[in-house]
Amino acid sequence: MQDMLKTALIQTSLFWEDREANRNMLRQKIKQLDPDTDLVILPEMFTSGFTMTPEAVSEEMNGETLRWIKETAREFDIAITGSVVITEQDRFYNRLLFVHPEGTVEQYDKKHAFSLAGEDEVYDTGNDRLIVVYKGWKICPLICYDLRFPVWSRNTEDYDMLLYVANWPLPRISSWDILLQARAVENLCYCIGVNRVGEDHNGHQYPGHSAVYGVLGEQLAFSEKEETVYVTLDKQKITHYRKKLRFLDDRDDFELL
């Protein structure tokens, strides 16, 4: 258990539907990380880009990408998270993988499929939220479109960090900025969003805007270019403001049906 957690947000362009090229590129970026990094966060569908042809890039859970993540996490003694396209029983999932340094794997299937792009027509969705415990931090990892749904993100487990991986395009980037900050404020937690940059095969532009917000909504990091952004989070700040403000004591009780 540790009070300080050093995170690395890898904001990068992606090779379209080329798993090997993306893994090789990301390995080079991870290899260059500061050695005291605790957690590496990759974008949504980091081996392919946001594709609606999952059959072209999908892998089973015992596939090459998960093996690559586990080997990389173990080699550099870091946790790695991001989402990839997974197939199970002839179904496709936009699945976030959280891999601990020793190789333990936790998973979350995107709850809210992005119907505007037809994601709901080709990907199955999950119904269970994931709370990861890593080095004493409780982390709630979610995926892109989930950001628009505050009830799904609501802090009912007293987590310390909300984490969103995304392929969020330029036309709606102001919504990304606003909602990341709002999720931090309403949940009295750190909120991290990792987006990609560049242009995909369909001509969609991605402007980055990967960012980290503190418990009061203060912006701790922000980027619009291809780079790795480092932020060290301090759990004592969460404890301080939750004791001082006690907003979460007044949250509404509810059940998701």
Rank of each mutant, 00 (worst) to 15 (best):
M4E: 13
L5E: 10
K6V: 09
A8Y: 08
L14S: 11
F15V: 05
R19P: 11
N22D: 03
L26N: 12
K31M: 10
D36T: 05
D36E: 12
D38H: 07
V40E: 04
V40R: 05
I41A: 01
M45H: 07
F46Y: 03
T47Y: 02
E55R: 08
A56V: 10
A56S: 14
E60H: 05
L66K: 06
K70L: 02
T72C: 00
A73W: 08
R74E: 14
I78K: 15
T81M: 09
G82Y: 00
V84H: 14
V85F: 05
I86P: 15
I86R: 04
T87D: 07
E88M: 07
E88W: 06
D90R: 02
R91E: 07
F92L: 02
F92G: 11
Y93K: 03
R95T: 05
F98Q: 05
G103N: 03
G103C: 01
V105F: 01
E106N: 00
Y108G: 03
K111C: 11
K111H: 06
H112K: 11
A113E: 07
A117D: 10
G118R: 10
D120V: 05
D120Y: 11
E121F: 03
D128R: 11
L130C: 08
I131Q: 12
I131N: 09
K135I: 11
K138T: 12
K138P: 14
C140A: 10
P141W: 03
I143E: 11
I143C: 00
C144P: 14
Y145H: 14
D146G: 11
R148I: 15
F149M: 15
P150Y: 06
V151I: 15
S153E: 12
R154F: 05
R154N: 04
T156P: 15
D158I: 03
Y159K: 13
D160S: 09
M161T: 14
M161Y: 07
M161G: 11
L162E: 09
Y164M: 04
A166P: 15
N167D: 06
P171F: 04
S174W: 10
D177L: 01
L179T: 07
A182D: 09
R183Y: 15
V185Q: 12
V185H: 13
N187P: 07
E199W: 15
D200H: 04
G203L: 00
H204T: 06
Q205M: 12
P207Y: 04
P207Q: 04
V212T: 08
Y213A: 03
G217M: 03
E218V: 04
L220S: 15
K225A: 06
K225H: 05
E226P: 10
T228E: 03
V229P: 12
V229N: 12
L233C: 09
K235G: 05
Q236G: 07
T239N: 08
H240P: 10
Y241E: 09
K244C: 15
L245K: 11
L245W: 08
D249S: 09
D249Y: 13
D253E: 08
D253C: 00
E255A: 00
E255G: 09
L257N: 15
